[in-house]
Design a binder for these strands. Structure first.
Lengths: 147, 147
DNA sequence: GAATTCAATTGCATTTTGCAAGTGATACCG
DNA sequence: CGGTATCACTTGCAAAATGCAATTGAATTC
């Protein structure tokens, strides 16, 4: 059989479910900051060049936690600060983010440095492994609370 | 040097540019229908289970063409029908779509058949190659106009 | 040539977004 | 200590995007 009839599963389609969670202007941008740029606090996200509004940011952070993509804890060094970290589910969005970056780099004018993109293109799994390792190692990310 | 400082390129970030184009509830759903389910007409898209409104659909189809992701031509067999096809740029979104599907399948309840997902996970490039080949071969897709 | 199909468009109500200005809790500084 | 600054939000309101139903005009079928 050369082709299965690709028809049936449009209804409960993974793409649809994914877009209910990620399909908006800001959610993946927050995840980019968390996963690729080591940002972790509300302030960090607000300072990103895209200037997300604080009410939207608060809403998206809440939803990302409800979906189990991010988790948060109060900083032990400064009790005002809440640090957000990706869960495993969040880390597993790295391939999506990377493919999105590679596509954009191929077809649009971006300010991404050649070096970083070339590496992402050549060895995406290496980059993913490094990032996952960094998040697994508590010394490499913002100090965790007592929890 | 173990790590480059991953900081600089947040401003003109590929993720941001990608989300300006794709970052909404409907755009990737249309592309799913085009790329994965052989849909090509306005009516096809309207009949998708997510029930996109016709004004939104018209708007997104226009934008996808402006971004060079889809192209359209009038059917030669029925001049009312306008068929939409992906450009190369559009086809190159397949990896993004596939990673999105694999992530969703891993973490959410979907109605996607095991077989299709397993194949996407095992040999994504094979699937991509097949789909690209199908679009390259005019007999395999909706008849093209004289253009 | 009347009814139907297709790809939209229009008008309007509802929802979501963006912006500016707070708020309360904690931290820092003299 | 007391005052100011910082942090993570929240609130109120205007503007924009979305969803819905009805309509349009061209092309096709009956």
């Amino acid at each position: 059989m050369p082709e299965p009839q690709p028809q049936s599963w449009r209804s409960a389609c993974p793409v649809n479910i994914a877009l209910e969670i990620l399909g908006d202007r800001w959610t993946l941008l927050i995840l980019r900051d968390v996963l690729l740029f080591q940002r972790s606090t509300f302030k960090d996200f607000q300072e990103s060049p895209e200037k997300i509004a604080s009410n939207i940011l608060a809403d998206r952070l809440k939803k990302l936690q409800q979906h189990g993509i991010l988790e948060s804890h109060r900083s032990e060094s400064d009790a005002r600060v809440i640090a957000y970290r990706p869960t495993t589910k969040g880390l597993d969005l790295l391939p999506v983010l990377i493919e999105l970056i590679l596509w954009t780099d191929r077809y649009e004018e971006t300010g991404a440095p050649r070096r970083s993109i070339a590496r992402l293109r050549r060895a995406p799994h290496e980059v993913i492994a490094e990032i996952k390792a960094a998040f697994a190692d508590p010394t490499k990310v913002a100090k965790r609370s007592g929890k």
